[in-house]
Design a protein around this nucleic acid. Structure first.
Lengths: 187, 187
DNA sequence: AATCTCATGTAATGGGTTACATGATTTT
DNA sequence: AAAATCATGTAACCCATTACATGAGATT
């Protein structure tokens, strides 16, 4: 039998380490604050939660009295779960495999008119600019929480990575536009 | 039946648009110059090539006289293939879904000692620094080709994106190290 | 002689998204 | 009353990697 190399397990475990919560809130959290470097679907989260319980890494209890939805299931991490999370944290992170479709299109740019790429790059710049704003919003939000005594240094650092990443891609796209449209010769 | 949303088809088509070549050389090319934004395995490339021929987007001929290996199969793009490639190039690129395991670990940093993350960040910085060197090497190489009259602006631009991307991640990691080790308070 | 690179291919497995099914509560 | 959000879950499908199988030629 093969070792499970999937990471969903650890993401869910990490989320439960923060606070006991439901599959739904885990999804929302990842969607909001992790989107620039991670994503998980319900199709991964719910089965993963069940597996965690089966392996003794989490426990669940049904929260029926609140009457929200059709019975929320709140999961909590166990000591065994914390140990598994810690072991994973200590292992060297795997090298990331990225897939930027826009870079693929740029690399095949000779097969089309420059205007096509310039259009894609414009959209890309706008998108990155909006994402930088979002990320800066999160950073400010974490500053507020910090002022109230909540430590969120690590979350703030990941938001900061978004600012760096999106800014770099925006700057590159601006440069690429100038080169493609002939405004600049040199890189 | 579902539309094929996979991109391997277009990558292979784009490679064939550059020059007729074998599955093996396509793989090597992607490995060398595309690794920072794309990757394909033989398990994808060879079946894709066969499908392209079946769909009339490429043609193949066996290159047995050279006697290299056990009969190379050289593929060329057809006019129909060029049309499919062009259509794809004009479509808006999909939003990239990235997965940075190191950012995941940083975000769960409160569950471990700072030293663990500092170690990961050190490795990450070194790795990015090497990649920046590689990318700058490619850019210089393309400058040489340019001086010889070969236009490779688009390939050079994708290499440049690597420099921007890796530099941003390196800079972020240096900042993160300073914040985690307490040398810096503010972001 | 052994190993590396060139070269092609398939099968098994794993990982992940999407679509679908269901239904209550909250907001408009 | 309708729409959005909260909430859980499964099945089908697709995408991709890995392992395996094969073998020639070049290099060490």
């Amino acid at each position: 039998m093969k070792e499970n190399t999937g990471k969903s397990k650890y993401v869910v475990l990490g989320m439960l380490a923060r606070m006991p919560q439901t599959g739904y809130t885990i999804k929302k959290w990842i969607e909001n604050e992790y989107s620039h470097f991670w994503q998980e679907s319900f199709g991964q989260i719910y089965p993963t939660l069940k597996k965690l319980v089966a392996e003794g890494l989490a426990v669940s209890f049904e929260d029926s009295e609140t009457g929200k939805g059709r019975g929320r299931i709140v999961y909590s991490i166990t000591d065994a779960g914390r140990k598994v999370l810690l072991d994973w944290l200590c292992k060297e992170p795997e090298i990331e495999k990225l897939r930027y479709e826009i870079l693929l299109k740029v690399s095949f740019g000779e097969n089309t008119e420059p205007e096509v790429l310039l259009g894609h790059l414009d959209d890309f710049i706008k998108r990155n600019e909006n994402l930088i704003k979002d990320m800066n919003g999160y950073i400010e939000h974490f500053d507020l929480l910090k002022a109230q005594g909540t430590d969120c240094t690590y979350s703030q650092l990941t938001a900061l990575s978004g600012v760096y990443m999106y800014s770099a891609m925006r700057d590159w796209a601006v440069k690429a536009k100038n080169v493609i449209s002939g405004k600049e010769d040199d890189l």
